[in-house]
Amino acid sequence: MESFEVTRKEQGNVMILYIKGYLDAHTAPMLEKELQGLVDEKKYNILVNFNELIYISSAGLGVFMGFIENIRNNKGDIKLSNMNSKIYRVFDLLGFPTLYDILEEEQEALKKFES
């Protein structure tokens, strides 16, 4: 059974979400719920680490689209890191690299929140 998991960690003023497994139209609501939780807590600096994500469809990308405007209006951001090349290609095909900071490593992404 393919599954999806999301765990969170607070580091300074950044919330890091570690996503794992398969993110599709079935599992996207789980990520949506998690992001909604962060917004409700007024935590607007969000880093999503894709290191253990195996699969993503546009439903997963749509979740980020649904939150980014509100988060940026609150002076925060969603930054993305540690994507494998298969996952990155999906983001690239949909033109996301012009809209989101996509970094190779988590540390790099964390530094971006400081600047």
Binding site: S57, S58, G62, M65, L94, T98, L99
Partner: peptide, 18 residues
């Protein structure tokens, strides 16, 4: 146009484009 979608930060239409 996909760029229009993205500029408006809209969800939807992504699947067909993919």
């Amino acid at each position: 146009d996909m760029k229009e979608y993205l500029a408006e930060m809209r969800v939807g239409g992504l699947g067909i484009h993919l």
